[in-house]
Amino acid sequence: MSADPDDVSSAEASSALLRPVRPGNAFEDTVERLLQTIRLGVIRPGESLPPERELATRLGVSRDTVREAIRSLADAGYLVARRGRYGGTFLAEELPAHTHGAEGVSRETIDDSLRLREILEVGAARMAATRTLAAAEREELWSRLGDVRDAKLDDYRRLDSRLHLAIAEAAGCPSLVPLVAENRMRLNSLLDQIPLLSRNIAHSDEQHEAIVMAILAGDGDAAAAAMRAHVAGSAALLHGFLD
Rank of each mutant, 00 (worst) to 15 (best):
R71D: 15
D75M: 07
A76K: 06
G77Y: 03
G77S: 06
Y78E: 08
L79F: 14
A81H: 15
R83Q: 13
G84D: 04
R85T: 11
R85G: 02
Y86W: 06
G87W: 03
G88S: 08
G88H: 08
A92P: 06
E94R: 14
E94N: 09
L95V: 01
L95E: 02
A97V: 12
H98C: 08
H98L: 13
T99V: 10
H100T: 05
H100Y: 11
A102K: 07
G104N: 07
V105N: 07
S106M: 07
E108F: 11
E108P: 03
T109W: 06
T109Q: 13
I110N: 04
D111C: 06
L116K: 13
R117N: 13
R117P: 06
E118I: 06
I119E: 14
I119M: 13
L120Q: 12
E121L: 10
G123A: 09
A124E: 05
A124G: 09
A125G: 06
T130D: 08
R131E: 01
T132V: 10
L133R: 04
A134S: 12
A134H: 13
A134Q: 14
A135N: 09
R138N: 02
R138W: 01
E139M: 08
E139N: 10
E140M: 12
W142N: 10
R144Y: 01
R144H: 09
L145K: 00
G146E: 05
V148K: 00
V148N: 01
V148A: 01
D155N: 13
D155K: 12
D155Y: 05
Y156T: 02
Y156M: 02
L159Q: 12
S161A: 15
H164M: 08
I167V: 15
A170P: 06
A171D: 07
C173E: 15
P174I: 12
L176W: 12
P178S: 09
